[in-house]
Design a binder for these strands. Structure first.
Lengths: 193, 193
DNA sequence: TAGAATACGGAGAACCTCTCCACTTGGCAA
DNA sequence: TTGCCAAGTGGAGAGGTTCTCCGTATTCTA
């Protein structure tokens, strides 16, 4: 099994450069070919050897984490902005849509994320991303609840899992671009009691 | 790409025997190790060579189809039985639960199924399974609609996709056995308008 | 500028799926 | 019963994958 402790910031300038090129190549490859993009090919595209790629990112998961970190920040910012909206249920619904859309932005990311979160030994950065999303969602859900706009029994973790599941489903049917919105529409219909 | 036309019923007794042993080994392997169970190992466990496995089942998908066919029949029977129930919305809900539970019975099956259905060149038997499930669900949905117990805009295909998506999500979190029911509860809350 | 710390890269180990084809065997016609 | 041949077998191997190892090269620091 791969050792997930790799230096986050290489000391040498050339290494930082390589790391950056690998991330760029990986972003392109994952977006284009999905989760099964070959790490060997990514290394070649970045102009480095396989050993170098694995030195920087000991696993596919580590690479994905690097790629999604920025997106998560944006998602949390969106959530904070929505917290000012008067219609609390609508804000929550909007945000769950955003979460699902974010999840589908990079094919195969949802599955990796979901699989990782529910398993021990998860990458610390990934766990932090997950916590940030969860906290943002919890704030929106609490606010909706204070206005009686959401059943008190619903858990924010479940809502996020739901959004991710629907994102995954819509990934499976790339020919049906409207699917994600339709599924979210059905699933969240019961949210504003 | 594999040629999916393999003889459904071998002429020779020894071949039928081998085929059966392969299916048994595959069922055990998929249930235990999930979708990534090695076909080589399955062949070895069945006591046949890799070539023999591939002669009977040209792809992993073909093997899975063999395994789920019986389950699909049972699912459709359940659907027909539910058609007599007075509470039409509840019947539909019950059946979607059954679909989701069926989907989680064999780890990794959902993903393979979903991926296959939305792609051209799908195995004919798998397509038939899918059609049977869809028809059963459509009957239940129509009946619910006639009593005004479901929004007229909801499509049975979307409901099935939803059920499969939630099944997939619950597969990702094997430590949380109640997840599937909770997610279905949230997602179907808006169904009895 | 020299030495030490750091990073590189590609050969190769160990897996995977799937194909090919020389060989074996079961079932049927005589 | 026997012998033929279509049907079936199995494992070597092609070509892919992930990931490791370690001799070599480069950068940083004192």
């Amino acid at each position: 099994m791969a050792d997930d402790r790799a230096p986050r910031q290489p000391r040498r300038a050339d290494a930082r450069d390589n790391r950056e090129r690998i991330v760029r190549a990986a972003r392109a490859a994952f977006a284009e070919q999905g989760p099964h993009a070959s790490l060997n090919r990514i290394a070649a595209a970045a102009g480095v050897g396989a050993g170098t790629l694995y030195r920087h990112f000991p696993s596919e998961q580590a690479l994905l984490v690097e790629i999604i970190r920025d997106d998560v920040d944006a998602l949390c910012a969106t959530g904070r902005a929505l917290a000012d909206q008067p219609d609390t249920a609508d804000a929550l619904r909007h945000w769950l849509h955003a979460v699902a859309r974010h999840a589908t932005a990079m094919r195969g990311l949802v599955a990796t994320h979901m699989a990782a979160v529910s398993r021990p030994g998860t990458d610390a950065t990934l766990a932090a991303c997950h916590d940030a999303i969860r906290a943002t969602g919890a704030a929106l859900l609490d606010r909706a609840r204070q206005r009686g706009a959401a059943p008190t029994t619903v858990d924010i973790g479940d809502l996020l899992t739901l959004a991710n599941a629907l994102a995954w489903a819509s990934e499976q049917a790339p020919d049906d671009p409207g699917l994600l919105d339709r599924l979210l529409g059905i699933a969240l219909a019961g949210l504003d009691v």
